[in-house]
Amino acid sequence: MSSPSESDAVDPADLSDDEWRERLSPEAYRVLRESGTEARFSGAYVDHDEDGTYHCAACGQLLFDAETKYHSGCGWPAFYAAESDAVTRTLDTSNGMRRTEVRCAACDSHLGHVFEDGPEPTGERFCINSVAMTFDEE
C-alpha cells in the first residue's frame, strides 16, 4: 500500500470497491470506505505534536494544519478547524446517536465526526481517525 499524494486525488466514482481495497490497508478501508471507527487511544496521531499538515489517507487531500490540533482527551486526534473546503458534513444517526459526520470533500471518505465542544476560536472539535490521515512534516 502506498500513501497517495494530493495530486492523486480521485473521484470515488472512478474507483471500484476492489481498487479501493488495493489502495488502502484493511483497517483504513474499514474506516474510510465503510465509515468505521478505530479504537480509542489506538491511533498513531492521538499524541502526535509535530509541525506539518494532515492529509486524507485515501486521496491525499489537505485536511488539517497541525497548528489547529489540540489534546481533547477524546481518544482520537482532535482539531479545532479544518482547511477551507477540505471536508463535508452530514448528519449521522448510526448507533442510536445524532452526530455530524466529517468526510473528505475530494474523495468522500469517512474521516470522523465534529462536535460543538471545542476550544476557541471555532468552538469545534473535529474528532478524526488516525488511520484516515497521513502526516507531512514541515
Rank of each mutant, 00 (worst) to 15 (best):
M1E: 08
M1K: 13
M1R: 14
S3P: 03
S5F: 09
S5M: 12
S7N: 12
V10A: 14
P12I: 04
A13T: 01
L15G: 00
S16Q: 13
D17I: 01
D17W: 01
D18E: 15
E19K: 12
E19N: 11
E22D: 15
E22T: 13
L24M: 11
L24R: 06
S25H: 06
S25N: 12
S25I: 03
P26A: 10
P26Y: 11
A28P: 04
A28C: 06
Y29W: 11
Y29N: 12
Y29F: 15
G36D: 10
T37Q: 09
A39R: 14
A39P: 13
F41W: 13
F41D: 05
S42Q: 12
S42R: 14
G43H: 08
Y45K: 01
D47Q: 13
D47N: 15
H48K: 04
D49G: 07
D49T: 15
T53C: 05
Y54W: 07
Y54P: 09
Y54M: 09
Y54T: 12
H55F: 02
H55M: 04
C56E: 04
C56Y: 01
C56I: 00
A57N: 09
A58H: 00
C59E: 07
C59L: 07
G60V: 00
Q61A: 13
A66M: 08
T68H: 14
K69Q: 09
K69R: 14
Y70V: 10
S72W: 02
G73Q: 05
C74V: 09
C74L: 08
G75S: 13
W76K: 08
W76I: 04
W76S: 04
Y80K: 03
A81W: 07
A81Y: 03
E83I: 04
S84V: 06
D85W: 09
A86R: 05
A86T: 02
T88Q: 09
T88W: 05
T88E: 13
R89P: 01
T90P: 02
L91D: 14
L91P: 03
D92L: 10
N95D: 13
N95L: 11
N95E: 06
N95F: 12
G96I: 03
R98E: 15
R98K: 13
T100K: 04
E101W: 07
V102H: 03
R103E: 02
C104D: 05
A105G: 05
A105Y: 01
A106F: 02
C107R: 05
S109A: 15
S109G: 15
H110Y: 07
L111G: 00
L111Y: 00
L111P: 00
G112C: 03
G112S: 06
V114G: 07
V114L: 08
F115G: 10
D117A: 14
P119M: 15
E120A: 11
P121D: 07
P121H: 08
T122P: 03
G123Y: 13
G123R: 09
E124L: 15
E124H: 12
F126P: 06
F126T: 02
F126W: 05
F126R: 03
C127S: 06
S130K: 06
S130T: 03
V131E: 02
V131K: 01
T134C: 00
T134V: 02
D136E: 15
E137N: 04
E138S: 14
